[in-house]
Deep mutational scan, measured.
Amino acid sequence: MFKRLMMVALLVIAPLSAATAADQTNPYKLMDEAAQKTFDRLKNEQPQIRANPDYLRTIVDQELLPYVQVKYAGALVLGQYYKSATPAQREAYFAAFREYLKQAYGQALAMYHGQTYQIAPEQPLGDKTIVPIRVTIIDPNGRPPVRLDFQWRKNSQTGNWQAYDMIAEGVSMITTKQNEWGTLLRTKGIDGLTAQLKSISQQKITLEEKK
């Protein structure tokens, strides 16, 4: 169930391209415009997507990853294993993690069937560096609404905000991946996880038929 919630949630996290980005210092504006741009692209490019579902990787690479804190999220997933990894191991892992996100997020976007969304009203940021933004996803086919909290983090150097995690039903996506990959990290280390991520990233994206 959580895996499905995570995939549905990713439908609204794909941010804007650099040329049309919203105010990078306001995570609420980023979330709002990102959702609108993403849904528009999914709707307008269905012919290309249906002809070649792996085209979704391109959308992810162009529109999402430049505005997601990939390395920060990847380091959180590694936890204690990050500090013990060599620079070469980290570089290989982050490259594999990025390719994994292209496949995983692309597969999530393949679930698009006309969903709509509501974003919580903007709250004062103050001096906060981590801000959760509640998004409610509404399914046109009558499924119950899904309420999610996207975690946005302020870059201490640039002042810009980027998304790095999502919490559904009190469970963090980062925590879920830590639990899912924990045994592999304990037995085969970061190299074993890197190899698995490379394998997963090679899987073809498949479209979910409308139910």
Rank of each mutant, 00 (worst) to 15 (best):
A163C: 09
P121V: 08
I190C: 11
F94D: 00
H113V: 05
P124G: 11
D61H: 01
G126Y: 02
Q118N: 12
A75L: 06
N26P: 09
M6A: 02
M1Y: 00
Q115F: 09
M166H: 05
D149V: 12
T175G: 03
T38D: 00
N52E: 13
I130M: 05
I133Q: 15
P15D: 02
F94P: 03
L78Q: 13
R41Q: 06
H113N: 03
A19N: 10
R41N: 01
A96I: 01
A21I: 15
T38W: 04
S17N: 13
Y112V: 12
H113E: 09
Q46P: 03
P124M: 09
R147G: 03
V70L: 09
Y112L: 13
A92M: 02
V68I: 12
D149H: 03
T116E: 10
M7L: 02
I137Q: 00
G126V: 07
A120I: 02
E209K: 01
G159Q: 03
S156T: 06
P144D: 09
T183G: 10
L184H: 08
L56I: 14
K71V: 04
Q24M: 15
K83I: 03
M173V: 09
I130N: 02
P124H: 02
I130P: 04
K154T: 11
T129P: 09
L11I: 05
S199P: 12
E63L: 09
A88K: 07
A95G: 04
D149L: 12
D165H: 14
G79I: 15
Y164M: 15
N26G: 04
Q48C: 10
G106Q: 15
K37L: 03
Y81D: 00
A19D: 00
K204R: 13
R98S: 11
Q46I: 03
N179S: 06
T158F: 14
T58F: 08
Y117A: 13
P87H: 04
N44F: 09
A85K: 05
V12I: 03
T194L: 08
K37M: 15
G74A: 08
K211I: 00
I59Y: 00
R153G: 10
S199N: 04
N52M: 05
S172H: 10
M166W: 04
T194K: 11
P140A: 05
E209H: 04
D191W: 05
G182E: 06
A9S: 05
R50I: 15
K188N: 13
P140C: 12
P144Q: 03
E169F: 03
R90T: 02
G142A: 13
K204H: 15
E169N: 01
N179R: 11
E45A: 13
A85V: 12
P47D: 04
Q178P: 03
T158H: 12
R4V: 05
T116F: 06
I138W: 10
D61F: 00
Y112W: 08
L56T: 03
F94C: 09
V12H: 10
L76E: 15
T25N: 08
A34R: 11
G192H: 11
S201E: 03
M111R: 06
G189H: 00
Q36C: 00
W161M: 07
G114A: 12
A21Y: 00
I138A: 10
A168G: 14
L11E: 01
S199E: 11
I49F: 07
P145G: 12
I205T: 10
D191V: 08
T129E: 03
T86A: 04
W181E: 15
Q151T: 06
G74I: 14
D61K: 00
L65K: 15
P140R: 11
A73W: 11
E33H: 04
Q103E: 06
D32N: 15
R4T: 04
I59S: 03
G182F: 14
P53F: 00
A21C: 02
S156Q: 03
S84N: 02
K210Q: 01
Q157V: 07
I200L: 11
G170H: 15
F39R: 04
W161E: 07
G189Y: 09
Q118P: 02
I190N: 13
K177V: 04
F39D: 04
Q80N: 07
Y100E: 04
T136E: 09
A22P: 01
K83F: 09
G170Q: 00
V8F: 04
A14G: 10
K204F: 15
Y28M: 03
A73K: 05
P66C: 07
I200N: 05
A168T: 15
P53V: 06
D149E: 04
A163K: 06
V135F: 04
T176C: 06
T116S: 03
R147L: 09
V171D: 07
L42R: 05
I13M: 00
V60Y: 12
F94M: 00
N179A: 02
V70Q: 02
I13D: 02
R41F: 01
K177F: 15
G142T: 10
V77E: 14
E99N: 00
A75T: 02
Y28K: 04
Q178A: 00
A110G: 10
I59F: 14
R186S: 10
Y28W: 08
T158P: 05
Q89A: 04
E63N: 15
P144E: 12
F97G: 09
I49W: 02
T129K: 09
Q196V: 15
Y105F: 06
Y112E: 14
K43P: 13
E122T: 02
Y81L: 04
I49A: 05
G182Q: 10
T136H: 04
K37F: 04
V70W: 01
T20S: 04
Q178V: 08
T187D: 05
L42N: 08
A19L: 13
T58E: 15
Q202N: 14
V146C: 09
I167D: 10
R98K: 07
Q46L: 04
I13G: 07
V135R: 08
T187G: 09
Y105T: 12
F94Y: 08
T158Y: 12
T25E: 00
N160Y: 14
A73V: 14
T158K: 04
V8Q: 06
L30G: 03
N155I: 09
F2T: 05
M111W: 06
N44K: 00
A75H: 05
I133K: 14
V68Y: 09
K102R: 05
R90G: 12
L207P: 09
S172L: 10
M111E: 01
K128T: 15
T158D: 13
Q202G: 10
D127R: 10
T116N: 10
Q196P: 10
K3I: 00
G189Q: 03
L193G: 07
K128E: 07
V70R: 02
Y81W: 10
Q62I: 13
A195K: 01
V60W: 05
Q89F: 15
T183M: 01
W152A: 11
V60H: 00
Y55W: 15
P87D: 01
P87T: 05
G106W: 01
Q80H: 04
I130A: 06
K3R: 10
L42A: 09
A96N: 13
E99V: 09
T58M: 15
A51N: 07
Y100M: 14
Q203H: 10
R4Y: 15
D32S: 09
Y82A: 01
S17T: 05
